[in-house]
Design a protein around this nucleic acid. Structure first.
Lengths: 352, 352
DNA sequence: TTGTAGGCGTTATCAA
DNA sequence: TTGATAACGCCTACAA
């Protein structure tokens, strides 16, 4: 009985007929639970082979009320591979535990947030991961539907679990590195904390800039003329290469005698490099540059010294946290996990 | 009757009770088909609101035998955002037609191919998109299961639909551009055609290099000393920045008097820029460089002249082709669609 | 050790 | 115009 083609997909019933047993027996074999005589098992296995049986995850999930689906809401700001790395962490870990990841990539507009969440809920996802900032209202919507959630990297509220990065320590080690190299005229190019009008949303930029200001104040002295902020043009927009370019060009024009720059992302650093080079200056000969993220760093010249964010680990940890909870291995009260950011020294920094 | 929380998700039955009508009536309202009195409709709508009803896509798909899911198999070679752009094209288009995209990102190993396909088939995806090369055997597996498929960019067989890019024209226009700028000692750095041992797999590299060789032969003269190929270390490995760097360093060391380079990807071009800069030379002053893809180009300095691949359009077209077929608007016989590649002139090329 | 039967939430058919 | 009911494919008591 071959009927595997053209949407005539064999079911348990077909396998049962082929093997000459009852449907429930086949089910027991396939799910490996309950008593089955060895003889029957092999008979059934063979029938599974010949019919080309394949479980119907739809039916299984419907019946069991567990889809083994993790919904992942993200906003992949190309070319920034950061979120792709997070997504891979989620996907690979989930897969290793028998879960499928349903990814919803919203581009820009945040009215898509709600649609993404609705899609997940319609598909009865067992848990949700938000690796892009999501409004408290929308997160609550998911929580109220009874689905465990985790907010990754930029939580906007205290709902559910949260996984973040120690941005302060990361930025701190970057500035210390520059100071140790003998720099004192160090500029900061980033995004303005407070521009999102939400204390959670600003968390990341706050910490990065905060560390810069604190360390500089304590050592070389903090000069706000050496700080260049971009305001995101919209809540979804993340300032990138263009901003880094403009800001650096401006800094150089002002003759502030800058000898080093800490950029709050690799994309911004890419723009910084463009501006420096355009002036006929060299890196790190004339100016040292440090980025943040470790996304573009290996592709720029010179190889960029940067603060690495554990993107993959962020995704992996999120998936693990949720699956552990789903399987009763973890309490369900919101946890806060902080991962380390590590300074990676490459070729864009040198002594003054 | 509020029971929307904690996995006590309301069903049609609950809505029906709330509205005091039959389940089938609610179904008619929700799907907007069949006769429903205006009065009943509003009554039902209100019940939908108060109960917080949400369709169960699992049940719906099971019953209707149509999941409205498109499975997308890809291999996101970070940081190359190419595949992310393809994926976004797929996802956004599918969404606009009411389909959900299930993405399976295999990393490296191609034994994952089969697993990805199995996952899609288990979830009863209505159609599949392969935007990474997939073995003929595995593609056939999907086709035999009766699912429409499309192979994007690097088809490895003639199965199903295929969407490719006019790489030959793209490379041709790049070389012509360099010739017009007065260059004659033009190097080519890419991946060795034939290294995959499959005429389909080599399609892309064949065309890019073929155009280079053809145009050069006809004009400045083809010198194979100016060609540097990398062999992929494995079928999954794509030579990148490291290869570009090594190859360019080597070319410069050989004193071949190279004044321009065509790289077969932006990642390779990034390595080329690193090598050139390391020698204290400048771009485009000493050497002009052209990349391929338009992925990293805007982030390098100088802004890279490159051959843009229509990544987003590739994904969009694939999704459209399949959905049209699913909805009977397109014949199901395998179509071959070729999209244009366009030379984007930026700052890394100038007259000799 | 195996089989029977009910139900998961929908949709669709057919009566009423 | 509405309602009862039978699937869809799977799982799981419970009966045999």
């Amino acid at each position: 009985m071959r009927l595997c083609s053209l949407r005539n997909i064999p079911t348990l019933k077909h396998v049962a007929e082929e093997a000459g047993v009852a449907v429930s027996t086949v089910a027991r074999v396939i799910n490996d639970k309950g008593y089955v005589a060895e003889k029957t098992r092999t008979k059934v296995m063979r029938a599974v082979e010949t019919t080309g049986y394949r479980v119907n995850s739809l039916a299984r999930s419907l019946k069991s009320n567990r889809s083994h689906v993790i919904g992942h809401l993200l906003r992949s700001t190309e070319p920034n591979p950061f979120f792709v790395k997070v997504a891979r962490g989620v996907e690979e870990y989930a897969r290793s535990r028998g879960y499928t990841t349903l990814t919803y990539n919203m581009h820009g507009a945040s009215e898509a947030e709600r649609m993404g969440i609705e899609t997940f809920l319609n598909w009865r996802a067992d848990a949700l991961i938000f690796s892009t900032p999501v409004s408290q209202e929308n997160v609550r919507h998911a929580v109220q539907a009874g689905v465990p959630i985790v907010q990754v990297e930029r939580p906007r509220s205290e709902l559910g679990h949260r996984i973040t990065v120690k941005n302060y320590q990361g930025a701190e080690s970057a500035v210390r590195h520059l100071l140790e190299l003998g720099h004192s005229r160090i500029a900061y190019i980033g995004v303005k904390p407070g521009s999102q009008g939400n204390r959670f949303a600003d968390y990341v930029e706050d910490e990065r800039f905060g560390a810069f200001r604190d360390v500089m104040s304590g050592r070389a002295g903090f000069d706000e003329n050496l700080v260049r902020f971009a305001k995101p043009r919209s809540p979804e927009h993340i300032p990138g290469t263009g901003h880094g370019y403009q800001a650096m060009k401006d800094l150089l024009a002002c003759a502030h005698n800058v000898s080093a720059v800490l950029a709050s992302s690799d994309m911004i650093a890419a723009g910084v490099l463009q501006a420096i080079r355009e002036q006929g200056l060299s890196v790190p000969g004339d100016v040292s540059v440090i980025g943040f993220d470790d996304t573009l760093s290996e592709y720029l010249s010179p190889l960029l010294t940067t603060v690495r964010l554990p993107a993959n680990e962020l995704g992996l940890t999120a998936a693990k946290l949720l699956i552990d909870q789903l399987e009763g291995k973890t309490p369900s009260d919101g946890q806060l996990i902080e991962l380390d950011a590590e300074l990676i020294i490459r070729k864009s920094t040198s002594t003054r």
